[in-house]
Amino acid sequence: MTQRPLALREPARRVSVRAPAYWRVQAAVGAAVAWALAAVAVVVAVAATHGWWTPLLWIAAAVLVLAPIAALTVVPAIRFRVHRWEVTEIAVHVRYGWISRTDEIVPLSRVQTVDSTVGPLMRAFGLRTVTVQTASSHGTVAIACLDDAVATEVVAHLVAVTSASAGDAT
């Protein structure tokens, strides 16, 4: 078994099916701001006295118009494919990122706190994020965008397992 190179298995479960819509709305808010700034840049470029800064303003406007397009179109689908999570009796494993890729594993015996958070926009989509903290400030793992019901279930499971383990988790 140790002969062939090991690979990290994909965590078993996907995030909520409503997560892509939520990400898209979130991206739309950002896009609205970016496009407003682009409009300002265009107005300034046209109306103000021309100089060496005029082409820079046009470039800035173009970047501001184009930048949010990926987040509005393909990114939510890619993130939905990549983002996965799994909670077993022993550990939490999450994977996320759409250009970069991050895997995080935290053993439940070392968990110190379990939080669940929900923002106003998330509430509208019925989503919830479960956050698991350890004694390391770099060891916080978030399982983002779960269905409300699933999140509640996960929190209950985590609390049950972690409260059963002994020691001070350091």
């Binding site: 970069s100 890729r101 594993i105 053993p107 070392r110």
Partner: peptide, 10 residues
Amino acid sequence: IIGWRIHQSL
């Protein structure tokens, strides 16, 4: 060791 992170940028 109380957790692992494996990060890969593009």
